[in-house]
Amino acid sequence: MTMKRQLFFLFIGAAFILLLISVSSFVYLKYKHHSLSKSNFQTLDQFIQQVPQEKLDKAIAVLKEELRKNPNYSEAHVALGILYHKKELLDEALSELKTALTMKPDFINIYQEMYLIYKEKGMEEEASRALASYEKLKEDK
């Protein structure tokens, strides 16, 4: 084999190895990012409870980013609704909770939070409906 041919095969082999390393790194990083973003929300109640008032904007930004990537993540919509409620952004909170409700109508925490918000807004009829839905789901479980 000539020197040029050997160099050519060496170059092709090196390029193939680099390609394999790049693809495996990409797959690993994609998997790692996916598992990290999901693990952030495995204990959603803890996440919400641990957010201090001065960090609400940051937590909201994290949830919005998660929803940008996965708009059907109902638990993130619920968490965002609860955080909006903590910030006293009641209309935004209701909007997020209603979105989550369309995805998971049997998620009991949604009705609990909606009840509280409707009470704060003085919307007694809506509050009563949310409470009735909550109690019905609680009985069914």
Rank of each mutant, 00 (worst) to 15 (best):
L80C: 04
F47D: 04
Y111L: 06
S74I: 01
L94V: 13
E125D: 10
E113A: 08
E54P: 01
F9N: 13
K141N: 13
M114T: 09
Y111F: 15
L18F: 10
Q49K: 13
K121G: 04
E96W: 02
I108N: 01
Q46W: 06
T102W: 02
A93H: 02
L18M: 10
N70V: 09
P52E: 14
E75N: 10
Y118D: 02
Y28W: 09
G81R: 03
S133V: 00
L29N: 12
K38F: 08
H33C: 02
L89N: 15
S74C: 02
S25Y: 01
L18Y: 04
R5P: 00
A132L: 07
N70M: 07
L7S: 06
K87S: 11
K38Q: 15
S37F: 01
A130G: 05
K119E: 09
S24Y: 05
Q46E: 14
E92V: 00
E139Y: 07
K4D: 10
A14V: 13
K69P: 02
F16Y: 09
Y73Q: 11
I21W: 03
L29W: 08
L36H: 09
G122V: 06
E66V: 10
K87T: 09
A130W: 02
H85T: 08
S39P: 00
A127H: 11
G81Q: 04
E135N: 15
L67Q: 06
L89F: 11
A132T: 14
S95Y: 07
V27I: 13
K138C: 01
L131P: 00
E65H: 13
D57E: 12
L44H: 07
L10Y: 11
S35P: 00
R68Q: 15
H85G: 11
L44K: 08
I117H: 01
V78I: 14
E54K: 11
L29V: 06
A14G: 08
L137Q: 05
L94N: 14
F47Y: 15
Y84L: 04
M103D: 02
E54W: 03
F11I: 14
D91Q: 10
F41L: 11
L80S: 03
L116D: 08
L44D: 09
L116N: 12
E75A: 08
Q49P: 00
S39A: 09
K138G: 01
G122H: 05
Y31E: 07
L137V: 06
Y115E: 15
Y28C: 00
F8C: 07
D106W: 05
V51D: 02
F8K: 13
K38M: 14
A59N: 02
E135H: 10
L89M: 15
S74L: 05
S24R: 08
Q50A: 10
K55Y: 11
S133C: 00
K98E: 15
F107H: 14
I108M: 01
K121D: 06
F26D: 05
P52I: 08
Q46F: 09
I117T: 04
A93M: 03
K136M: 10
L63K: 02
L18K: 01
D106Q: 14
K121Y: 05
E126G: 01
E135G: 02
L131D: 04
